[in-house]
Amino acid sequence: MEAQVDRKEVLAIVAKHDTRSGGLIAMLEDVQEAYGYLPEEALRIVAQAANRSLVDVYGVATFYKAFSLQPRGKHHVCACLGTACHVRGAPMVVEELERQLEIEDGETTADGEFTLETVSCLGACALGPIVVVDGVYHSKVNGAAVKGILESVKTASEPDEEAAPMETEDVTSAAV
């Protein structure tokens, strides 16, 4: 599922940001927004256009967990394994997610629907364990709620339903 990189589009993204300093992360964020991940070709264009060495761009792209160099699935499932979530049973939630999706942490399902990732803190520790699916925060998740969350994503993404992502009753959304 390698994305086709449009040179003009990447150049437009680079042009929007300050190329001298600090703008690199914002550029990469926008590139990831456009392609779902950071394609190699796009990184090369960014490096060239922003007048940075490819090593620097690659270093930043691999440093932050938010960036992915691999194509990701349609839905992004992100489970928090930070300390607060961990003590409230996040490892069990991740295990359940892995079992339901039949993939390991960091992998994408064969049908390209889901990508499972873990992060080390989302900054909303009081709501833990947290699972973020496509930007929607599900709080106080337990093993039993996992199935519901995944189901809600599947139904929400069906073409005839344009409504906002469904949520099960014991699951609330919270903004960061």
Partner: peptide, 25 residues
């Protein structure tokens, strides 16, 4: 040249070329 640099972070931090490919630089 700037052909090699630090990659990844934490215990995965290492030194090498981007994408593990031979660098043009």
């Amino acid at each position: 040249a700037k052909a090699i640099g630090f990659r990844h972070r934490g215990e995965k931090r290492d030194i090498g070329t981007p994408f593990d490919k031979h660098s043009e630089e």
